[in-house]
Amino acid sequence: MAGLDNLMAFIWRDPRANNCNTYLIDGRAPLLIDPGHSAFIENIAGRMEESGFNLPRLALAVCTHGHPDHAEGAEVLAEIPVPVAIHETEEPCLKDMARLFYTSQGQTAPEPRFDFLLREGDLMVGDNTFEVLHTPGHTPGSICLYWPAEKALFTGDLLFEEGVGRTDFPGGDALALKESVRRVQSLDIEWILPGHGEIIQGREAVRENFDFIGRFIFSTM
């Protein structure tokens, strides 16, 4: 990708499966953001291999939140083993959410093990420094990862192109989500790398997207 040389974006466009976008930042210590569903890890791994990357090289995987379409694959990564991290507020909620989600489908909830937790602050991964921002609303422990050097924001399910994350799941909070969107809006952003849908590129496009959300989406929440 022009401007983000070390970033590989695996944008999930297959409408038959609700899977999230997965991002890989290659380098001295490769970082994966949102592994997605366990069932699709193989697909992602295959696409990575085409680019000459294999999963065991990963230094770390971060889940922006605990929904299975973002975090279920953590259990596959843990087997490799690759350390996986999630926000400290999310882990306890995750057990309850997973139980609800899986039992409603007649399945047993997996219990992903997170090697360490995240809170607001700096996260250095190899030569890259990220800011972990706690951005609740879609879930209580949702995070955005801000990459100041590239002016890039990984938003998880906080916001997308012309949309925001649902707040009708357990733990969802529309007011908190609005607050979180307003908070990240103040950052210097040239790239929005959302959990679903297309990447938003360019300062102007980013600004327009925040405007759109503020004017047309917030009023419906």
Binding site: A29, P83, L117, L118, E120, G121, M124
Partner: peptide, 8 residues
Amino acid sequence: GISGSAAV
């Protein structure tokens, strides 16, 4: 290669 105040 991982460190920082965000890691608990």
